[in-house]
């Protein structure tokens, strides 16, 4: 199998034509570099001068868009993740990332829910996953929480627990319920899932799959062809 395929680009390509009126600063880069070199500057120093000149030009001529201050998500003011409830309590927390705030456990916000008493580990996990996939309510969504479409909760095919390992299989079609492939969403969701499911003391690892293929989920979220297995230790 040939893995290294490459073709040399022809060196005699015609110069790329640019509409300089669209970006009057582009040509400045070349001019600044040439002038600096003609004055004896090292090419690296000439490039540095050219970059600074072009960036300043773009800023002055508004080629660079005026920064839009995206309104901070209201959820940023909500309470951060809390300590897990007492083991003998039916209360649990479901975590959701607020906007694209730092996708780590520390940046997640907690929503209190109550599990029915007497559930098995698998039943508890299934309930938690359905809450995770179903997302917060409409009011919370409006506050900026990131979550799949509520219909995602209908895509839980099976939840199995054995020897501490929790395996969650999702039904095909789950791919269309969220921007799973965006780094912002995937890292935020996985952090929320781990924080939520590792409240169950019996769970030490979590593996997600689609249609029985863990690789399919891992590739969906751009984590690679190996299976995504979350461990309690690595989640902290």
């Amino acid at each position: 199998m040939v893995l290294v395929d490459a073709r040399e680009m022809p060196s005699d390509l015609p110069p790329v034509q640019r509409d300089e009126s669209k970006n009057p600063c582009a040509d400045l880069w070349e001019r600044t570099r040439s002038e600096a070199r003609a004055n004896g500057a090292r090419d690296g120093d000439a490039r540095r001068q050219a970059d600074v000149a072009r960036a300043a030009c773009e800023s002055e001529r508004s080629v660079t868009p005026t920064p839009t201050s995206f309104a901070p998500s209201p959820c940023l003011g909500d309470q951060l993740g809390r300590q897990a409830p007492a083991a003998d309590s039916d209360a649990v927390y479901v975590y959701f990332p607020c906007g694209d705030a730092e996708p780590s456990a520390a940046g997640l916000r907690a929503f209190e829910r109550s599990l029915e008493p007497g559930l098995t580990v698998e039943q508890k996990a299934t309930t938690l996953v359905s809450w995770l996939l179903g997302g917060p309510g409409e009011t919370e969504r409006a506050r900026g929480y990131l979550a799949p479409d509520p219909v995602a909760a209908e895509h839980i095919a099976s939840v199995e627990w054995s020897g501490g390992a929790l395996r969650i299989d999702l039904a095909p079609g789950i791919e269309q319920t969220a921007p799973w492939s965006s780094a912002t969403f995937s890292t935020g969701f996985l952090a929320a899932m781990e924080q939520t499911l590792f409240q169950l003391d019996e769970v030490t690892t979590v593996e997600l799959s689609i249609g029985g293929e863990c690789r399919r989920f891992s590739e969906l979220v751009e984590f690679g062809p190996e299976c995504v297995v979350s461990t309690r230790e690595s989640t902290g």
């Binding site: 920064p67 996708p103 780094a183 890292t187 690679g224 062809p225 690595s234």
Partner: peptide, 20 residues
């Protein structure tokens, strides 16, 4: 600095092209 929204630096242990 050239994009319309506010930029941010993030980290990940999972993204395939960062870890392999």
């Amino acid at each position: 600095a050239g994009s319309p929204g506010a930029p941010d630096l993030k980290s990940s242990s999972r993204l395939y092209e960062l870890r392999t």
